[in-house]
Amino acid sequence: MSEIDFKNLPDQEWRQRLSPEEYFVLRQAGTEPPHVGEYTDTTTEGVYACRACGAEIFRSTEKFESHCGWPSFFDPAATDAVYEKVDTSHGMVRREVLCANCDSHLGHVFEGEGYNTPTDLRYCINSLSMTLKPAE
């Protein structure tokens, strides 16, 4: 079986693979409402994978409680798991976080907010953009 080239999947294929809510977040850079995501308050140990392609993007060991309304991480699972680009939507400048494997929108990263984490970064990630694979 050949590997799927997620970066070149046509829009119609993404619409078939994802629910309308997942498509809105992952493919249209949407944001789920705060405090409603399934992973916002979870403390389950495991690996978070991109809901669109299954690539490992974050680990529970880097998740922390920021009280911002979305799951927060201080570092991605690997240096090449995600990438960032400038987002100037909504009248502000932010750093958008995308899956390096499929270019799907995951959330945004913020710096210098004073959280007691090793990186001083907060990867604010939509629950709809991930699936949690619990540790065995």
Rank of each mutant, 00 (worst) to 15 (best):
R51T: 03
T79R: 15
T42L: 12
A29H: 05
R17S: 05
S66H: 12
E62L: 10
W70D: 11
L26A: 04
S19C: 04
T43K: 14
F73Y: 15
Y39C: 12
C68G: 00
T79I: 10
T61F: 07
R59Y: 08
F58A: 11
A55Y: 11
G30I: 02
W14P: 05
G30T: 00
T42E: 12
C50R: 06
E45N: 02
A52M: 02
E65G: 07
Q12T: 07
A55R: 14
Y23R: 04
E13T: 04
R27W: 00
G69D: 06
Y23K: 06
P33G: 06
W14S: 05
L26I: 01
H35P: 01
F64I: 12
Y39A: 08
D75G: 13
H67Y: 13
T44F: 13
D75C: 15
P71V: 04
P34D: 03
N8H: 14
T43Y: 00
R17T: 08
V25F: 03
V47Y: 08
E38N: 04
P20C: 04
T61C: 12
V36Q: 14
V47N: 09
H35C: 02
Y48P: 08
C68S: 03
F24E: 04
T31C: 02
F6W: 15
N8Q: 12
A52N: 09
I57P: 05
E56F: 08
F24T: 03
F73K: 14
Y48G: 06
R15A: 09
A29L: 00
T43M: 04
F24Q: 11
P71D: 13
P76C: 15
E56D: 15
F64K: 13
R17G: 04
V25N: 03
E45I: 00
T43D: 08
W70P: 13
T40M: 01
E32L: 08
S72E: 10
S66R: 12
Q28G: 00
G69I: 11
E56V: 15
E65H: 11
V36W: 08
S66C: 10
G69H: 09
S19I: 09
G37Y: 06
Q12K: 12
C53T: 08
W14L: 04
